[in-house]
């Protein structure tokens, strides 16, 4: 029986709302969710997927052992060429997306109104377009070869996919940068102002060092989201893990029993790769939260 606090007529009607979806740039919903799994669940998934052909179509003459044997045979091809390409695409996309995103984010807080408005517009444009549409547009709009200094360079499909994926990443990084800078208390700007720092100096010497750490966890969160999205480029014919899995299944006469082991393996490998990243993201976030 608590005696109520007096002089408090503004009672909370609603308790805090503890959810923010992956769509918002600042929260780490995705990493948080991924990190909730125990490491053992991975083994469980593998076990579950390897059992599938056994009970799904026990009546057919293509056995679980054969399906797994096929997967084993194709593993170097699917992982060594396919998944590695997913990783290369994710690294390059993140590199390009981050550089472009930081510039765009700084543009959004520029005192030059037209620049700030147009940077905001570009950010919103690419944040709200479907990734697949952006991918297709870049795929088609980019020339397949360019000429530099008289020499012709071929641009492979996967490189074009990098540019396509970099656009939404850029827009989301831009929002992270803008949000992080705005989260620094205005007192910091005023203090720097009173010390006769220029705006440029304030930004680079005072503000950015403070919010740099804040940007790392959401940045890593977007890396995990991006990596999970790389199978999209299979729809454009890029020979990454899903495309190569389908090629492998075709080579094995397209037994339907192969679908679950092959796609299941893809799920597991993405999970296995993103899981430690998610755990680390959360650890970083916790560490930064304590220090502040």
């Amino acid at each position: 029986m608590k005696s109520g606090t007096r002089n408090n007529t503004d009672l909370a009607v609603l308790k805090p709302f503890n959810y923010s979806p992956t769509g918002s740039v600042h929260d780490l919903q995705f990493s948080r969710w991924l990190a909730e799994f125990s490491p053992r669940s991975l083994i469980f998934f593998v076990f579950l997927f390897s059992l599938w052909p056994g009970f799904a179509l026990a009546q057919s003459n293509y056995s679980m052992a054969q399906a797994l044997e096929a997967l084993w045979r194709w593993l170097p091809f699917v992982v060594g060429q396919g998944f590695v390409l997913n990783l290369v695409v994710s690294f390059l996309t993140m590199l390009i997306g981050t550089i472009a995103g930081v510039l765009l984010g700084l543009g959004q807080i520029s005192p030059l109104r037209p620049l700030a408005r147009s940077c905001w517009f570009v950010t919103q444009l690419f944040r709200n377009s479907p990734w697949l549409v952006l991918l297709f547009i870049v795929m088609l709009a980019f020339p397949f070869e360019i000429e530099i200094g008289g020499r012709v360079f071929q641009i492979p499909d996967w490189l074009k996919a990098v540019f396509g994926l970099a656009l939404p990443i850029m827009a989301n990084i831009s929002e992270i940068v803008r949000g992080a800078i705005l989260s620094v208390p205005t007192g910091q700007w005023e203090a720097a102002d009173s010390l006769a720092y220029s705006r440029h100096q304030t930004l680079w010497l005072v503000i950015l060092p403070q919010c740099f750490k804040r940007m790392i966890p959401p940045w890593m969160n977007w890396y995990a989201i991006l990596t999970m999205a790389t199978p999209l480029i299979s729809l454009l014919g890029v020979e990454e893990i899903i495309t190569l899995s389908r090629q492998a299944m075709e080579a094995e006469d397209n037994h339907p029993e192969l679908l679950v082991p092959f796609f299941g393996f893809a799920l597991v490998i993405f999970f296995a790769y993103c899981y430690p990243i998610a755990r680390y993201t959360l650890r970083l976030e916790k560490r930064f939260a304590i220090r502040q």
Binding site: L34, A229, P231, I242
Partner: peptide, 8 residues
Amino acid sequence: FRNTPPLV
């Protein structure tokens, strides 16, 4: 459903 990519 939250874990796996919608494409898959």
